[in-house]
Nucleic acid binder design. Structure first.
Length: 358
DNA sequence: AAATCGGGGTC
DNA sequence: GACCCAGATTT
C-alpha cells in the first residue's frame, strides 16, 4: 500500500470529529462498561444486524445479568432464548465461554487481546471489539462496515474475502486507529458504515469523509467493496413426519456438523427431490418405521430461504394409537408443555404453532 | 483457500 | 432475486 500520510490523518481526524459531534446512532450496548455485556453483544451481532440482535441482547441481559448467571443456566434454556437468531454454534460457544470464564477465571473476563481471542467463538473482529470497548486497547476492528468504508475512501479494489484482502484491510485499519481513542474510532467507523456509507445508495452528502473519498470523486461507490466469490444457493428437501401419540409428538435434537445442530425437530427424511405422500410411502427408511400409515396426511409445507441454502420442508402428520416400537432411539415423546421450553428451527416452529401443537 | 453455518432487511 | 449484516470455524 502506498497511501499518503495526509490522507490517513484526515480520515481518522474527520471520523472522530463526526463521532463526537454528529453520530446519533443509539444502541443499548454502546458505552457499556461491563466486559460480559460487551462480549455478549458482540457474539449476538456477528453477521447480524443491530436491530435484529437488539431484542435478543435485552432478553439475555435481563435473564442473565452476570456471566455467572449464564454459566449456571441449563443449555436448553439458553438455546431457547437464542431460538430464531441463527448460526447456533454461536450459542454453543457462548455457553462454553461463559462457563470457562466463570469456573476457571473466577468470573473475570480476560483483559488482553491474546486472552480474549483464545476463547471459543471469538475471532479477530470480536477480540478487537472487546479489547477496545472494554479495556481501551488499541486494536482496530475489521468487519463488513470497515471493508466498505476503507475500500471506498481509499479506492481499494482488492477483494475483501481473500487472504490477501483480509490482511491488507487489517493492516490499514490498524494504521488508521487513534490509540488514544480506540473505542471512539472503532465505534465511529462501524456507525459510519451502518448509517452513512451504506451498501447501496450511500449518503455521501452527509459524509464527513467526502472531501477526500476517492470512490466518491471517481464515482466508484457502487463498485466497492469487491467480493471475489459469488454465493451459490443449493436446495434441500426435508420431509417431516409429525408423529402424534396421545398428546405427545416425537422429537429429536439434531446432531452432526449440519444445519440447525442442537435444535429440535420431528422425524425427518431428506430426499433429493420434493416428494408427495405416495412417494413417501415407498421410501425404504419410511417403511422400516412400520408406522400405522393409514392415518398419514400431508399437512403443509414451508420454504426457508437462507444465505446459501433453500430448505423446502413438507410436513406429514402421522396419528398413532399405540406407541410405535420402531422409532429411532435417539428421540423422545414431547408433551405440549415441553414444546415451549426447547428450541426449534423457524420453519418447524411455524408449523407447530400454526397447527396448534402448542 | 473454500465451504458452512440462519434469518431478516433492503432495494 | 441478489446482496448484506458489529464473523468464526472447519474442511
Amino acid at each position: 500500500m502506498d497511501i499518503s500520510k495526509g490522507l490517513k490523518k484526515y480520515f481518522t481526524t474527520q471520523l472522530l470529529s463526526w463521532h463526537r459531534n454528529d453520530n446519533d446512532r443509539n444502541l443499548p450496548w454502546k458505552n457499556e462498561q461491563d466486559p460480559y455485556k460487551i462480549w455478549l453483544s458482540e457474539i449476538i451481532l456477528q453477521q447480524t444486524r443491530a436491530l435484529q440482535g437488539m431484542p435478543y441482547y435485552l432478553r439475555f441481559t435481563e435473564t442473565y445479568p452476570t456471566i455467572a448467571d449464564m454459566a449456571a443456566a441449563k443449555d436448553e434454556d439458553v438455546f431457547r432464548i437464542w431460538q430464531g437468531l441463527g448460526y447456533y454454534n454461536r450459542c454453543k460457544n457462548m455457553l462454553a465461554t461463559a462457563r470457562l470464564v466463570t469456573t476457571e477465571f473466577g468470573g473475570k473476563f480476560p483483559d488482553t487481546y491474546e486472552g480474549i481471542i483464545s476463547l471459543k467463538g471469538i475471532g479477530p473482529y470480536t477480540a478487537a471489539a472487546i479489547a477496545s470497548f472494554a479495556y481501551g486497547l488499541p486494536h482496530a476492528v475489521v468487519d463488513g462496515n470497515v471493508y466498505r468504508v476503507l475500500s471506498r475512501y481509499f479506492a481499494i479494489e482488492t477483494p475483501f474475502d481473500t487472504t490477501e484482502g483480509k490482511k491488507q484491510f487489517a493492516t490499514l485499519a490498524q494504521e488508521l486507529i487513534d490509540p488514544a481513542h480506540s473505542q471512539g474510532y472503532n465505534q465511529a467507523i462501524m456507525d459510519l458504515g451502518a448509517t452513512v456509507c451504506t451498501p447501496r445508495n450511500p449518503l455521501c452528502d452527509q459524509c464527513p469523509l467526502q472531501k477526500n473519498c476517492v470512490a466518491f470523486h471517481q464515482n466508484l461507490t457502487t463498485l466497492l467493496p469487491v467480493r471475489s466469490k459469488k454465493i451459490t444457493v443449493a436446495t434441500r428437501h426435508f420431509n417431516y413426519l409429525v408423529i402424534k401419540w396421545a398428546d405427545r409428538i416425537w422429537l429429536r435434537k439434531r446432531t452432526g456438523k449440519d444445519i440447525w445442530e442442537n435444535l429440535h425437530e420431528p422425524l425427518m427424511i431428506e430426499t433429493e427431490q420434493a416428494i408427495d405422500k405416495k412417494e413417501l410411502l415407498q421410501i425404504t427408511s419410511f417403511k422400516e418405521l412400520q408406522l400405522e400409515y393409514g392415518s398419514i396426511d400431508f399437512a403443509g409445507n414451508g420454504t426457508q430461504r437462507l444465505t446459501h441454502r433453500i430448505i423446502e420442508s413438507r410436513f406429514f402428520t402421522v396419528d398413532v394409537e399405540e406407541k410405535p416400537s420402531f422409532i429411532p432411539e435417539d428421540g423422545f415423546w414431547a408433551t405440549p408443555a415441553e414444546l415451549a421450553t426447547i428450541a426449534f428451527p423457524k420453519t418447524v416452529l411455524s408449523f407447530l404453532r400454526n397447527n396448534l401443537y402448542f
